[in-house]
Every structure is written in C-alpha cells, then in structure tokens.
C-alpha cells in the first residue's frame, strides 16, 4: 500500500520533470531556471552545505572570507558549464593543492544540490 503511494508520487514527479523538459514555453523554462538559481543560492550560502562565503565574496552574501577569488563574471570565466561543475564537484582536479573542499566527490552536498549550486554560480 505504502509502496504504491510512493510509486505514484515518483511517477508524478517524473511526469512533472518530463513536462518541464518538453515544454516549449519560454516563460515556464526561465521560471524553472530562476527557482533553481534561487535554491542554489540558499545551498551555497548555507553554513552546513556549501558555505562558499567562508572563502569567496559572492553578490548578496555577507561576512565573506577572502581565501578564494570573488565569484563574479562566471559566464565569461566558464563558458562551459560542465567545467564549472567539475570545479565545484572536485577542485583538486584543477589544483591538487587546493584548500577548496571537493563538494561532490566527498558528498558534502548531493548531486541535485550541486546542480543547483552550479546554476546559481553560473548566473553570477
């Protein structure tokens, strides 16, 4: 009984996602993007999640550290979003000595949280 309920929920979720990706309405797409960015921001700023402000200056944040570079102009610095994802997933790929934690590799945040953080950082 419970199982069925969960399956139904999962199916509904899948349907919504499928609908989202099939949607040709530009308004709807950007609305979904905006909420991913908004959620990504929350995860990035959360002290127990990304806590990116410990080291980076990011627009909208406060009490930021200065260990890493300010995160600005990200689209210009990372035209390829996948590269940005790698940097956040495991910063030791580009610099084996880096202090930056491997957020994906060490499961500091989940995959879906990481995707949202990438959306947020890429929007800066």
């Amino acid at each position: 009984m419970r199982k069925t309920a969960r399956n139904t929920l999962a199916a509904t979720g899948a349907l919504i996602i499928a609908m989202g990706s099939l949607s040709f309405t530009p308004n709807l797409a950007s609305a979904a993007g905006a909420s991913a960015i908004e959620e990504g921001k929350k995860i990035a700023f959360h002290r127990k999640k990304g806590n990116c402000l410990a080291c980076h200056k990011i627009a909208g944040g406060s009490l930021e550290g200065n260990i890493g570079p300010a995160l600005v102009n990200m689209k210009a610095r990372y035209p390829d979003k996948a590269k940005l994802r790698v940097q956040i997933f495991d910063a030791t790929v580009s610099n084996p000595n880096t202090i930056m934690p491997p957020f994906g590799k060490h499961k500091i945040i989940s995959k879906s949280e990481l995707d949202k953080v990438v959306e947020f950082i890429h929007s800066l």
């Binding site: 402000l53 410990a54 009490l63 550290g65 200065n66 260990i67 000595n97 202090i99």
Partner: peptide
Amino acid sequence: DHSGSKIR
C-alpha cells in the same frame, strides 16, 4: 598556505 587570509 592561507595564513593571514580570512575564513568567514
């Protein structure tokens, strides 16, 4: 490496 920098 990062002594002298600010963490938060």
